[in-house]
Design a protein around this nucleic acid. Structure first.
Lengths: 230, 230
DNA sequence: TCTTATTGTCTCAGTTTGTGACAATAGTAG
DNA sequence: CTACTATTGTCACAAACTGAGACAATAAGA
């Protein structure tokens, strides 16, 4: 691992949302030999924009470059400070927190972001310290380190609040999708069922969709149109 | 100034809103002998919660303890970094940035909050480095240091977005107020005129107000009721 | 050709919102 | 004491929006 200089005391965590099999999912890392699960995160280089640091981390995990990303809260309670977690994590990788790594055991304030990506576009990649980086349904998360569970909850809450205002649901789907697929995304995010006709009417009235050709699924019924966001 | 240990690289800025004479106003500090204007801000002590640090700063400026406070964004661009501003500010106060103060010239990431307070409750107090801490209408701000103008714009935008969702307008008024005063607050925040009857109906239907006695202003017309938030 | 599941659209009722009307004040001016 | 004015609380009506169901139009299999 080439050593780069980072801003001390400042970290970011990202809640990366995807949608598959009817479930809203997020990416979770599992660290080597520790049984510890955490959100993907990282640090900010000395001359790097905060937002760029997050995009860099997202690119390392997903390979994607154009990502819908939103900052939603900065967690700064002193109670977040638990050096034993980071020490465990480093030592499990054979790293003794000496001069070069001691800064990692300090207190951190973490700026949290959520990202919306198309599940199909991604093969998640673990980093040097982790065994895996995998999708978990938001309702079936493993126990997470520190306050990461709380960060996820706040991310979902913010996503729900922003869903109608920003019409971001489409970022979780391929470019072209059916109205039913879009509705499934909304239902997974909100955690409630929606009325088909009302949803369709609202989406069409919002004037944000372009209608394309029909999509023949091979199923024995009327074929739905494909749509994309304008 | 007793020296306390602070987290390096981390600051906060607060946009403190008040309402008077029909205008939405915020508190701005002017630093000694520099002509520099800035938002009230500060640093986080080593073992202090971020939110508590902000409340501490707010209390120092306003004397208030129960304050409606909301975190809205963390500004982390490298371009914020301009050590000359801080150097000017320290030197104008006869402080040479030596060992004890050099950390203040480093790059900072700033967590921004907005607060809503009752204008009448407050006599703003400058700090050790500033001549004044005064109310300015948001449309008549002086030129501010760094990206503080941008921070203010984002604060207003967030306040507008949250206005209906969180019904926070009342925090800018005394405990008891008339419907017309509340409407004036909403109009100042949104920057638009609202219809009297629609506004009244919406507020009453929201079921968040308690109606009290009438308020006799001495004017020659029907006296309005006073309301308070439940 | 018949059957089934799903889709796009329409209808109708119920609710909410925009807009103006209007009577009820609380003072002031005669 | 009576007119007059400005503002308030409330109502009325139309327009817009939303919930809920109805229904014809498919696409494929039996």
């Amino acid at each position: 691992m080439p050593q780069t200089a980072y801003l001390p005391h400042i970290a970011y965590d990202s809640v990366i949302f995807g949608f598959s099999e009817g479930d809203l999912k997020i990416l979770i890392m599992e660290y080597h030999n520790t049984g510890l699960f955490a959100l993907p995160g990282g640090f900010v280089q000395l001359q790097e924009n905060l937002n760029d640091a997050v995009l860099r981390g997202l690119n390392e995990r997903t390979g994607l470059t154009d990502i819908y990303l939103e900052q939603f809260y900065t967690f700064g309670d002193f109670s977040r400070f638990d050096p034993e977690v980071m020490r465990t994590l480093l030592e499990a990788n054979g790293i003794i927190p000496d001069e070069e790594y001691r800064w990692m055991l300090d207190r951190f304030i973490s700026v949290a972001y959520y990202a919306l990506i198309n599940y199909e576009d991604v093969t998640p990649k673990p980093d040097a310290l982790s065994d895996s980086c995998e999708w978990y349904p938001v309702n079936e998360l493993p126990q997470l380190i520190l306050d990461h569970q709380h960060i996820v909850e706040k991310a979902i809450q913010t996503l729900r609040d922003n869903l109608d205002r920003k019409l971001v649901g489409g970022n979780l789907l391929p470019r072209k999708f059916t109205m039913n697929e879009l509705q499934n995304v909304y239902e997974a995010i909100l955690g409630t069922k929606l009325r088909r006709t009302t949803f369709q009417r609202k989406m069409l009235a919002a004037d944000v969709l372009t209608r394309h050709e029909k999509h023949f699924s091979g199923k024995a019924h009327m074929a739905p149109y494909l749509y994309s966001f304008k």
